[in-house]
Design a binder for these strands. Structure first.
Lengths: 524, 524
DNA sequence: GGTTCTAGAACC
DNA sequence: GGTTCTAGAACC
């Protein structure tokens, strides 16, 4: 019967044999119900029986083995009673160690060397790991903390800087707005003056044109200019060359020179003498152009008179009947004033009875006191306008001129913008470019000279850039005066063109001026 | 002998008695050298002796107690030998349990219920604490992480916004710079024209003054203005009122009206008829003031002529000999042109032989062709200047005017700033306010009118604010075009005044124009 | 896996 | 602090 259970440990087999063997029943046997076994004579059992089955005679070692396989001592209540015989038998039991149930021995397992040790070891490992992790976490925490505080400091500075930049921005906005407002005010005021001026001129000059009652301009040829004694002009640009080119000649000799005969008077005298030698022939050519500005109420007013049959001279005359879109007011003044040269008129008056030249005789015949007064009337009114402009701080920035400077160059793109701008104008610019009015050669030359100045001006870097602008986009940066507080939105930085354009837009938009309708920029 | 060691546990005392008692030597006694004790007959000892001293007869319990007090079993080599008698005695020893050394029993201590358990418990507590802390740290770590990422996002946005704001700022800077440059260019160009104009005027007017050869201005009283049929001026500001106040009257009747007789002609006619009814009496007053501008080269030129004995009229005349610091050029034009009214001159010439008024007769007598030409010369030169200014885009912004507009108000603080500004000027302003030149009543009235306009102008909000500026500080925000990248520096936000001032500074500083020396702002 | 010594721990 | 049962652990 022994060893018939291959998977049952040796101790269990030996124990089964000992308990189940009837020969050892006096030392070790089943209890009454066969659920446990009892060692009846402990001392004899250990010293006589145990050595036969095991390598020892110690009851302790036997008990240790029992405990090792999960056997438990059955406690007896009577042992608790005081001083009862200490010889009562030792009793042990196990759920799978039952009489007649030998097959259940396979279920009895020897206790493994304690999971507890493993658990403890694992716990220790865990502790060290936990501590390691804790240190790591703490280190990273510290790193985080420093980063956080650094970020917070940076953030504070950034918020400050953003606030300050926004303040700056707003300040600049104000500055720009004010500058623009300032300019706009000038423009508006000037525009009103222009309107006023035109009306005044009409008031004084809108009488019927007198075809042949026209002044003459006597000019010195460019080649002769060097011979004329002109006061030193060191340090001065020759922008006013136009004026220098004109030298007035006297026609009569009965001029009374009342003066101390100082240096400036000498120039005068010299100019006179030059006139006497060459002035008469110059009188033969008379560019007669009278530009009378028209208005809504005086559509039939403006007439340009031109004498094509006169001989032409090769000197430029500051008369232009071609429309100068940048200078609607000034061009008119230019032509009317230059054409009606006061000296020429005076000469005509004074020489009324003479017949110096056949070409001018017709004009001379009609020249009378009335014409002279009329001419002077016009001139005076023009001057009054200028005075008003200047004394009233009416800086003569023409509004349309400014608009065009800010939108496009006449030189660069004349047709488009002039048409675009001017077809919508309120008749303010109507004095220029009446069809059917052709300019004489002298006038053309003069205009080219004027245009040259214009070109010079439009080449200003600011304008040059502005002139390259498109007209659609409304850059946000300039318009957006209310900075977003918490919503941080990505804003594309403005290009220089956009910024300039913004200025323009601002200029036009800022004030709801009547000028708006004249500007192609504003389509809102 | 028992209980004589009060601090020795009962077990040790009983053990000492048992071992040391010669009566029990057959069961338990000292070994040969007295360093340990032996149990000779284990079974009889446990069953017969132990119960006499202890509450049990179990050898195991006895051994357990020995172990508990640190006694150790002495291992015998012969037991390792195979199958030697199993009866060899059990031997135990303890360093302080020696024969004859009963006093050392006090040093034998019962093992405490294991520090190990405490350690384990502490470790467990530590583990739980560690875990708790770890969780806390982890939680705070997560909080930190979220804060950090939020901060980082905010930071990125802020950096972006800072960049964008700086770009905006730079763009605005450009815009301001360009606007200012633009204005400055206008100013500079205009200044050159002013210089030019002055020279031109000197060229034509610096002859010796002819005291009584002075024109007359015929003015219509303000009350009569309403009677004059003036074209409708709806929608127009009455800023040019000055011009409206002046109506020119014809002196002679032989005026030939050649025209289609349109509506505009009617006005002309009405004006004429008005003259014939009331004009003659008006001719009696003549405000004669000739302001000839002086320059460095023509110190002796400027003279102001005044006829105080003429009757004064109650209408304002746009003549001013008082220095208009805002309009040095225009004021000169104003006086010279208004004083030498063309009509008046013409009247003088045409009425040379008549004696209308004793007051003007002196002037009339001296009026001749030369004076007329001279007058017209001046007028023409002025006109030429205007033409040049206008056709050459010379917006008549006086440089000094602009400077003053940007620095102080003549109205607000006239004396300080005028002196400050003008004493350093390069003779450009020298035409105004020559001492010893007193203005007439009419001139004063006119200047007041002009000043009224000036006041109106300086009340522009932009100017008003600019006028309140100090001139020392140079705000950083405007000048600092290079934004600091990494160094975040606290910048004080600009006040509006500072911003405006910055504009002014910019205006002056931007271009190294010759204007700089004229400005009190620039002290570098 | 068994044996032995010692310890843990519950209970008294 | 002692007793008992059981377990830990070293050693074989």
């Amino acid at each position: 019967m022994k060893q018939e259970h291959p998977n049952v440990p040796a101790f269990l087999c030996k124990l089964w044999m000992l308990v189940d063997d009837p020969d050892t029943n006096e030392f070790i046997t089943w209890n009454q119900n066969g659920e446990s076994f009892m060692v009846l004579d402990e001392q004899r059992f250990s010293k006589e029986i145990l050595p036969k089955y095991f390598k020892h005679n110690n009851m302790a070692s036997f008990i240790r083995q029992l405990n090792m396989y999960g056997f438990r001592k059955v406690l007896h209540l009577d042992s608790c009673v005081v001083k009862v015989e200490h010889d009562e038998p030792i009793e042990f039991q196990h759920p799978y160690f039952r009489q007649g149930q030998e097959h259940m021995l396979a279920h009895i397992k020897r206790k493994v060397p304690s999971t507890k040790g493993e658990e403890t070891k694992i716990t220790q490992e865990d502790i060290s790991q936990i501590l390691t992790n804790a240190h790591k976490v703490q280190a990273s925490h510290e790193t985080f903390e420093s980063r956080l505080s650094a970020l917070q400091r940076e953030n504070e500075s950034l918020w400050r800087e953003v606030g300050e930049l926004k303040a700056k921005h707003s300040q600049q906005q104000q500055v720009i707005r004010k500058i623009v407002q300032f300019i706009l005010t000038l423009v508006q005021n000037n525009r009103l003056v222009n309107l006023k001026r035109k009306r005044t001129l009409l008031l004084n000059t809108n009488g019927p044109p007198q075809p042949n009652v026209l002044p003459q301009i006597v000019k010195e040829p460019d080649d002769d200019k060097t011979t004329a004694p002109i006061p030193t002009t060191k340090g001065l640009k020759r922008r006013g060359q136009l004026t220098d080119d004109i030298i007035i000649y006297d026609v009569t000799d009965d001029l009374e020179v009342e003066g101390e005969g100082d240096a400036s008077n000498n120039h005068h005298t010299v100019a006179k003498s030059e006139y006497t030698s060459s002035g008469i022939s110059s009188l033969n050519h008379v560019p007669e152009i009278v530009l009378v500005e028209d208005d809504e109420e005086y559509e039939d007013g403006p007439v340009i008179q031109e004498e094509k049959d006169l001989e032409s001279v090769d000197v430029p005359i500051p008369v232009s009947d071609e429309p100068n879109p940048l200078l609607p007011g000034s061009s008119q003044l230019n032509s009317s004033l230059s054409a009606e040269d006061p000296v020429t008129i005076m000469d005509s008056i004074l020489n009324e009875n003479e017949t110096d030249s056949g070409a001018v005789s017709q004009s001379m015949n009609h020249l009378g006191k009335a014409e002279l007064v009329d001419y002077l009337d016009k001139m005076d009114c023009s001057l009054e306008d200028f005075q008003a402009m200047l004394s009233g701080k009416q800086f003569s920035i023409d509004p349309d001129l400014l608009v065009e400077l800010f939108t496009s160059s006449v030189q660069m793109n004349p047709a488009d913008f002039i048409n675009n701008t001017k077809t919508e104008s309120k008749g303010i610019e109507s004095s220029k470019s009446k069809e059917g009015q052709t300019a004489g050669q002298n006038t053309e030359t003069s205009f080219k000279k004027s245009e040259k100045q214009l070109v010079q001006y439009t080449k200003h870097p600011f304008l040059t850039e502005l002139l390259e602008l498109g007209t659609d986009a409304v850059p946000e940066a300039i318009m957006d005066t209310q900075p977003k507080q918490s919503k941080l939105v990505r804003l594309e930085p403005l290009t220089e063109e956009e910024a300039s354009e913004a200025t323009l837009f601002y200029l036009c938009k800022l004030e709801h001026s009547p000028l708006d309708s004249d500007m192609p920029l504003l389509d809102d």
